[in-house]
């Protein structure tokens, strides 16, 4: 192959990502799927990647069996307050963190199985009017809670026994924090996006606010999904759940914006839009590594490669209905696609 031919082959092979159906989970008693996630679970000296499904009143843990089957092994019942979301903890095994509440999160609980007698346990780690929560590396959770006047940004460390150990507060900005992202490349940096479109940068060690920068869009409530620091600049992947549908730039599901934290100046880097001929507005989604996935108003799931800047796969609704949830596995090689009836489909992304 000549250099030009090799470049074409490489380029084509990079673009040709596909989603292959691997297995399906059906929760027979489920009323409505709320969330899905994955967690490493160790038992009898053997650790495997398990799937966690959330319905309004219970959380189930599914272990893999041979021939792409899954077996429900544990179910925690949460009957007092409905489940709102699962909060993945990136480097934690044998522990599931969930957020509960009515319209907004009122409680964060840890779910585990006792190593002594095998009984299922729950531990309350935080209560309050919680606006945003994110699982951080090194067994930590960050949350924003309270009203604008008494907003509390708190880091909670979680023990192996499912208890909250140390607590540390970060300086609150004068704007409501709606989402957080750890900054890859800088161990002690955290960012958050606010209700009036600012990006706040904290030093996790000292709790200081280092910078508050405007995201630069007219519509409110941008959500940060991923942030990394490179060459002295801060790159942030954002979604805009309240973006208008008739935008001239093709109504992108995600955008990447680059900030200079020294000057607070920023500029757009890339839009992640649907290929021509497809339509649909961003409903919800997740970013992991260089992969971004979103459920669109059309009921389709779209996947983008953030490095290539391209939509690499589309998953239209199947015979059972529209997609309502999309999550990446602990690694970004597996995609979990959920429907309202509680069905979860596992796809290999390669």
């Amino acid at each position: 192959l000549t250099a030009e031919e090799l470049a074409v082959v490489l380029s084509d092979s990079l673009r040709a990502r596909s989603l292959q159906l691997a297995s399906k989970l059906k929760n027979p008693s489920s009323s409505c799927a709320v969330d899905v996630s994955t967690v490493w679970w160790e038992s009898a000296g053997f650790t495997e990647l398990c799937i966690v499904t959330a319905c309004e009143t219970f959380i189930s843990l599914w272990k893999p069996l041979a021939s792409s089957q899954w077996r429900k092994v544990y179910t925690w019942h949460l009957t007092e307050i409905p489940v709102i979301q699962i909060v993945p903890l990136p480097d934690v095994s044998n522990l599931v963190c969930v957020a509960l509440g009515d319209l907004e999160i009122g409680e964060i609980r840890l779910l585990l199985c006792s190593s002594e007698d095998g009984s299922l346990k729950q531990s309350l780690v935080k209560t309050g009017n919680i606006k945003a929560v994110l699982g951080l590396t090194n067994r930590r959770l960050v949350s924003s809670s309270g009203t604008l006047q008494d907003q509390q940004i708190e880091i909670i460390s979680v023990s192996e026994a499912g208890r909250s150990n140390e607590r540390q507060t970060l300086m609150p900005p004068e704007e409501t924090i709606l989402a957080f992202a750890e900054v890859e490349g800088i161990r002690d940096a955290l960012v958050g996006t606010t209700a009036v479109n600012s990006l706040v940068v904290w030093n996790l060690k000292t709790g200081q606010i280092l910078k508050k920068m405007h995201v630069g869009y007219s519509y409110p409530a941008s959500i940060c999904h991923r942030a990394y620091s490179d060459s002295g600049l801060l790159f942030v992947v954002l979604s805009h759940p309240h973006a208008k549908e008739n935008e001239s730039c093709g109504n992108p599901a995600f955008r990447m914006r680059v900030f200079n934290p020294k000057t607070a100046r920023s500029t757009g880097v890339m839009f992640f839009s649907l290929p021509p001929g497809h339509s649909g507005r961003y409903l919800e989604g997740e970013v992991k590594g260089v992969s971004a996935a979103a459920v669109l108003t059309s009921g389709t799931i779209a996947v983008w490669d953030l490095f290539l800047g391209q939509c690499t796969a589309l998953l239209p609704p199947n015979a059972d209905g529209n997609w309502s949830l999309v999550r990446w596995s602990v690694t970004d090689s597996c995609l979990l696609a959920g429907q309202k009836d509680g069905s979860v489909y596992v796809y290999h992304y390669s």
């Binding site: 940068v201 030093n203 280092l210 002295g232 200079n260 020294k262 000057t263």
Partner: peptide
């Protein structure tokens, strides 16, 4: 540091802002 539309860039922005920001 280099100059661009984003202004002067510092590879040590995190440490520098941590020193400058109020405790």
């Amino acid at each position: 540091c280099s100059e661009s539309d984003l202004g002067p860039i510092s590879l040590n922005w995190f440490e520098e802002l941590s020193t400058e920001a109020p405790p």
